[in-house]
């Protein structure tokens, strides 16, 4: 029967992949900035759907949180605060089209080549139990890796030479902390740069 013959995993993969690519193209070909943002949401949300389909729920939720939520709210803030007329539309000149097609096409070819170099590309479809098996990965491995342990138990390649990094120990904690402190510095810096300039006492009451 047709219904039973469909490979649902592949079906949903194709559905989400088509949504991602289709709305990514819509972003490119639309000229209204807010519409672009809306199409970008759907495209990124469908990419999150792909992550969920692969059983990577933490990454999928992260995709929602950071890309779909954060970036787009930021984008919309930017558009709304800087727009001079009501519905801004961007006209693209022919030269820009050519340049963009050249760059984008080159990058696309590079990606396709890289994807096809993966040996599993042509391997047969996963069986049902294999798909179910790959769903048991949870975010605990990420947390463990950040605090102490590598998920694969391999010796850490990032360990400095000479230190006795036993197999399975990870050294991700320090980079993680450095990145977060760095982000904090960036945040404070941005706040400092964007602060209200000191007004003269004459018009201070207007503030």
């Amino acid at each position: 029967m047709l219904f039973a013959a469909i490979q649902w995993h592949s079906f949903f993969f194709l559905l989400f992949a088509l949504l991602t690519c289709g709305f990514a193209l819509a972003v490119v070909f639309s000229s209204n900035v807010v519409r672009m943002a809306f199409f970008l949401t759907i495209s990124l949300g469908a990419a999150a759907g792909l992550f969920f389909l692969a059983g990577a729920e933490f990454v999928g939720a992260m995709q929602f949180m950071i890309y779909v939520g954060g970036t787009l709210v930021l984008l919309i803030f930017g558009v709304m605060l800087t727009a001079h007329e009501r519905f801004i539309s961007m006209k693209t000149r022919a030269g820009e089209w050519v340049l963009a097609a050249f760059l984008g096409g080159g990058l696309f070819l590079l990606l396709v080549r890289a994807a096809l170099m993966v040996p599993q590309w042509n391997s047969p479809n996963l069986q049902r139990d294999q798909v179910a098996q790959s769903e048991v990965h949870d975010s605990a491995a990420i947390g463990a890796a950040v605090s102490a342990y590598r998920a694969d138990g391999l010796p850490s390649s990032a360990a400095p030479a000479g230190t006795a990094a036993s197999p399975g120990k990870s050294v991700y904690l320090l980079p993680f902390e450095i990145v977060s402190v760095h982000l904090l510095v960036v945040l404070i810096g941005a706040g400092y740069l964007a602060r209200a300039k000191k007004r003269t006492s004459a018009n201070a009451w207007q503030a």
Partner: peptide, 9 residues
Amino acid sequence: RIAVRERGL
């Protein structure tokens, strides 16, 4: 708490 599960990977 199974910190690391690696079946299938």
